[in-house]
Design a protein around this nucleic acid. Structure first.
Lengths: 227, 227
DNA sequence: GGTTTGTATTTTGTATACATTAATCATATT
DNA sequence: AATATGATTAATGTATACAAAATACAAACC
């Protein structure tokens, strides 16, 4: 683990939640790598807190599937296998389709405007060529759709599933030959939501995931062979 | 909280997991009621352990959505609102459809046999008229289908969603006028899986949830008005 | 050489202690 | 009488202490 694991003090959150967010972020960004052990005293010293909040944070990470517990040996960052990624993508594909169908039914006028804006901003982001900006614009756009469902449980589940893909998504975005396709897909999604065309919307959403799948899995394989 | 909250000692599980399972069960069975506070010292005394494993169990229940945390006030059993139940059912409906479609593709010969057996056993369970036996047979049957997907993430997600419905499911099963319909639906599910007819299977799975929805929501309303 | 066994060390699992904040309740004041 | 206020109690948040298990490593043994 490189040493930029640092706690961001949020004055009014319990330490356990601060630690939880910190570790979660570290895992998602790859700062803490799969297989790496999370040793309590170590983390406690590094983050300048006691073991208690560390342990409580780990319990949540455990349930979230980001770390696995080995009894009497402690926690380590969960390995992402090809199988587990396929499982995630399979569910995500279906949930995204559900999201967009519900969005067709329930999206508000303001949200349609926001979605339009997000589409335009994504197009601009693509033009900058900056991966981080593009990824951020992509998240913002999808977030609008997910929230438009009004289903908070669904929001939470999608977020959890997205987590698992987080690290590997970048490779797809990096591939600039896909950018035109992405912009086009987003516009199709926008159009079909506006037209309340659930059929098309759902098809595009699934296609959207299918397109990402190959590069995510490739990246995953590459990652594994590099260890 | 009535006083049959008791710990079941599993020699080789960490206490936090034993406590987690105990509290989880207590919440699902309604032994711990929505809104009821989970006070650490009380629970610790009652279960004969210290606060530490209690707290760690609560962290997991928190992420699972079964309890909510109020800062500096502690945990209480999550209220199940009509909205949150609708959200759950909406996602569950879609996931069940996914499950059964995947099962069509991937179910093994042995699992088909097991599913047939589970169907028959459900029919027998219905004949006994015993709610608990029927509910159990129902769970067993659905479990086979979910597992037949081979998607462990999906299994985990469906289990989490089922939790939320757990308490309220019984009312539907109690209504014996629905029994014939249930048996019929199960047979249709079995048939369509054997024929690998994803279209029909998916439709029946959704219908299956839709049929349960009304009585679950009714029960929820009744539950709320009784407090 | 390889296996085994024993000891030291590390790490987790659990309990407890201390600090801080929230809730309670009685008393005083207007 | 109603509201404020202050002391008391109780609960959570955090840190630390202690016990037990796992690991690592070295010496003894075959």
């Amino acid at each position: 683990m490189q040493d930029h694991l640092q706690i961001k003090m949020d004055e009014f959150l319990p330490l356990r939640d601060v630690v939880f967010n910190t570790l979660r972020q570290a895992i998602l960004t790859g700062d803490l790598k799969p297989g790496e052990r999370l040793m309590e005293i170590h983390l406690a010293n590094r983050l300048g807190v006691s073991r208690t909040p560390i342990r409580e944070a780990i319990r949540k990470l455990e349930l979230e599937g980001l770390v696995i517990m080995i009894p009497r040996r402690g926690a380590e960052v969960a390995q992402i296998t090809e199988k587990s990624m396929n499982d995630v993508l399979e569910v995500r594909r279906s949930m995204d389709a559900l999201c967009i169908e519900l969005a067709c039914e329930r999206i508000s006028e303001e949200e349609v405007v926001a979605l339009k804006k997000a589409c335009d901003e994504f197009e601009q982001a693509v033009e900058t060529g900056d991966i981080k900006i593009i990824a951020q614009a992509d998240v913002a756009l999808h977030d609008i759709i997910v929230r438009a469902t009004g289903n908070m449980r669904l929001v939470q589940l999608i977020n959890n599933l997205s987590e698992q893909m987080y690290r590997y998504r970048f490779e797809y975005i990096k591939d600039s030959s896909q950018h035109a396709r992405l912009v086009e897909e987003h516009r199709m999604i926008y159009d079909s939501i506006v037209r309340k065309d659930k059929e098309t919307a759902s098809r595009v959403a699934k296609l959207h995931i299918d397109n990402q799948k190959k590069s995510i899995i490739d990246q995953l394989r590459l990652d594994r062979s590099n260890r």
